[in-house]
Amino acid sequence: MSIIVKFFVAPSHEAAAAVVDGGPERTFESLEYGNFDAEEALIEWESIFSGRSFEELVAADEPEAVAEPDDGEGPMVFAVPRALQDALAAADRSRLAEVGRLWIQERAADGEAFDQEIATRILSDLAGLARDIGGRDHRLYCWTA
């Protein structure tokens, strides 16, 4: 479980990895959340959007770790999978609410409780970041600590 989760846009894996120690907020615009497993959430969200299984995405090494200096024991940076980034950018409000509802159901099956409004807000905020990328060759990233 990540205590702090920050999503941000960066021009490259190298630029994103450079903020692993201090976080992205001094370098990149970021969205901050807390108290959920961001790596697992990225896989679950992509699974819901794409229909691919959680196991298939894990086997494909999604999401890609671009900075993991302490073997997962400290701050880390993940690249949001392009398929998820594209799905978020294309999703309308009702689709984001539906994905949020399905994600809440998955978390409930593991004994975690999430509020629908919060889940939808996280996904909507991420969709906004994804849309802002537009034609630029940037990516969404996730920093956790």
Rank of each mutant, 00 (worst) to 15 (best):
A38N: 09
A91V: 00
A17E: 12
D125V: 07
A130I: 10
E68W: 01
G51R: 04
A90L: 12
I122Q: 03
V20R: 02
D21W: 04
A130H: 09
N35D: 15
L123M: 11
S94A: 15
A109G: 14
G22M: 04
A145C: 10
D86A: 14
A113E: 05
D92E: 14
R101G: 05
R52Y: 06
R131T: 14
R107F: 00
L126A: 02
A145S: 10
A91E: 03
D125R: 06
S2H: 08
W45P: 12
S50Q: 10
D71W: 09
E117S: 14
L123K: 07
G22T: 13
D21K: 13
D110N: 03
S124F: 01
F114Q: 09
G134H: 09
E39V: 06
G135W: 03
E106M: 13
G128D: 13
R101P: 00
A87S: 15
W103Y: 12
N35Q: 13
A38C: 15
P11H: 11
F114S: 09
T144K: 03
Q116V: 04
D70R: 03
A16N: 14
R82P: 10
E112Y: 10
P81T: 11
L140R: 06
D137Y: 04
E112H: 09
F36H: 01
R107S: 06
V80H: 06
F36N: 01
S30N: 15
F28M: 10
D37S: 10
D137H: 13
D61A: 10
I118Q: 14
A97D: 14
R139M: 05
Y33R: 13
F54K: 11
